[in-house]
Design a protein around this nucleic acid. Structure first.
Lengths: 352, 352
DNA sequence: ATATCTAACGCAACCGGTTTAGTAAACCGG
DNA sequence: CCGGTTTACTAAACCGGTTGCGTTAGATAT
């Protein structure tokens, strides 16, 4: 063990000795529990902040059974498919929400799909109070694995019907539906959908919303859908070059599964001399930085990332005290920008 | 405490009872320590895996003093400036490297720069064995804060001279130097540098390497440098449109601080009818997905992300046993692709 | 056969908190 | 002034592992 008494961290007993009280009293003070006199409490609080004392979470875990730790499963293989800028932001949102509730976040990574056990190991060994699987997809083998773990688990971005799991998601389908309706009401007649990868539930739902609006419009519009391309501007560019020059017919509106994809479409349009929004409307998803820097700026759908994080954490931690819903669906916000602004219409519209 | 005996996790004592030995013996088995007979060891290992037993890390932390936890400080404000696709990959690399060494990774996020204490809190309360600050920049207030913490700390991506800190980095400057030399040797005469944000040390070093090659070339070449733009394709596009049409002279080679920036330059070139690589060479950094999807494919510099993660973890954990260097500098790999392939030269080159 | 050594284990203290049961003093109404 | 209640606090068990030391049994040396 060979620890110098010198470099040992301050413990609750050190504080207790200095304050002339027992360890139990100090414990009550740092946990803001009743049963301590005002004077004693003040004296102890003074000593605590003077010594820079921080209670050892491991010791707390041992005696209370709660680790104040949330596990985030980070699917590496998935991230090779979907390296997406919202990822870090979502992580940060979860981290903040957890911190707000006095919890920290531990990362459980899997180097590959046949090494799930590595992630599961971390989660169980650290006795996490809850698990979050962000950017989950429908066929992720982690989902059944986590469902067996008897630790409360929340998926973000995939609406699993597994009764052992909870989820939070944003209304991708509704947003895509509204976006498509908006374009149809503008008078667009040939709508294409260029969606994100099939492995991502969000991408699928966006396609569903598009399809619903199309179905409602009936024969009034032509449509086509390329689903399942990667969230990649370069790949989108190649696709767009092809369908924008198709002699059999090309779109006057493209609903994209992500701003990254929409950026590729805008580039292709510019190359081909197709003016946006006059001859072609383009929409994206996620409201990335790039959406405000394209020419014209890109109509996009902002995800409630902060709220997703907060809701996920709440679903994990609020259960013991209140009745918690099994799932939470959050609203997105559509930001209409230049890429869908119909020139004739806007010119005709009276100033207000 | 009110725990059912039922849903309690299996402990080392449960295993011990089942095996008819003491807890100490079980402990020696799961830690692969000597002093246990072969038969007993086999019997215990059997029981451990049958029960799915995973030792409680908190209990281990308490008795050994080691938490088997590495803290990653996740600078949220920074990520607003630099939302970059290598970020998740680097995180994953660190996670894997840590897992390999039997450690897990805990995230310490700061909602803002004046709430550093939140991150520091997490780190100290969980008694992390080491701290990693990825994508560090020169003026990050976290750096002095972490230096006072008397927990071993490694910066990734910033070569701090603070003696209390260690760092790992890749040789951005050397790569940029080689890249620039390569272009000069090709006969390029007017080289522009379009670098990433000043807040990121990597971006600064890339500028330094460019400058060194330029200085060596002397009067043989013209040059110009726009430093400090965000890692953003849209912004880069705007810059490129401007300097590629500058009547006072435009470049025949652009060295970019990131593939995201290079993608913008390629788009601008295409818009303006400038052929790449014949009239203009373009290079990027980071070898993102997009680099292989542009037309032509983008010459780029691949960062040794996996190795950076491994080295950082090693710098944190190898100290007690061996002498550890204070810093590690890793090599990058330059991938020459179409965007710098000089057409005349390649046509003249005999097939091999 | 006896003394000596060693490998294999048990015992129990310990890590740093939390929490329950218990005690002493203060307080309160009549 | 007394019995009863409340308040402030202590002591100690406990959480689940680890580890130094002591014990025992079997192997080896004499």
């Amino acid at each position: 063990m060979a620890k110098d008494a010198e470099d040992r961290r301050t413990t609750i007993h050190d504080i207790a000795r200095q304050a002339g009280v027992s360890a139990g009293t100090v414990s009550r003070v740092i946990n803001r529990q009743p049963g301590v006199g005002a004077a004693t409490r003040a004296r102890i609080e003074e000593l605590v902040s003077a010594a820079g004392f921080h209670a050892n979470v491991s010791a707390q875990q041992l005696s209370t059974g709660r680790s104040r730790l949330l596990g985030i499963v980070f699917p590496v293989e998935m991230s090779r498919i979907v390296i997406h800028p919202v990822y870090p932001q979502l992580l940060a949102a979860i981290g903040d929400a957890a911190a707000e509730r006095g919890h920290a976040v531990i990362l459980a990574t899997t180097p590959s799909h046949d090494r799930l056990d590595q992630a599961m190991d971390v989660l169980t060994r650290h006795r996490v109070d809850g698990i979050i699987l962000p950017a989950a997809g429908p066929d992720d083998p982690l989902i059944p694995a986590l469902a067996t773990l008897d630790t409360r688990t929340v998926l973000i971005g995939h609406r699993s019907d597994n009764p052992n799991l909870r989820w939070v998601d944003s209304d991708h389908d509704i947003a895509a539906y509204r976006l498509t309706r908006h374009l149809i009401e503008q008078g667009r007649k040939r709508l294409w959908h260029l969606g994100g990868p099939d492995e991502v539930s969000a991408a699928r739902l966006r396609a569903v919303g598009f399809q619903k609006a199309i179905n409602e419009a009936g024969d009034a519009v032509e449509w086509s859908a390329v689903e399942s391309i990667k969230f990649d501007t370069g790949i989108a560019l190649a696709h767009a070059r092809s369908f924008l020059t198709n002699p059999e017919g090309s779109p006057d509106a493209v609903i994209c599964g992500s701003d990254l994809i929409a950026a590729g479409v805008l580039t292709a349009a510019r190359e081909l001399g197709i003016t946006v929004p006059d001859s072609l409307a383009v929409t994206g998803f996620d409201d990335l930085d790039i959406a405000t820097h394209t020419l014209p700026a890109l109509t996009s759908v902002r995800m409630p990332l902060q709220a997703l994080g907060t809701a996920a954490v709440s679903l994990l931690l609020d259960y013991p005290t209140t009745v918690t819903p099994r799932s939470v669906l959050l609203e997105t916000e559509i930001l209409y920008r230049g890429s869908t602004e119909p020139f004739p219409l806007s010119a005709a519209r009276p100033r207000e």
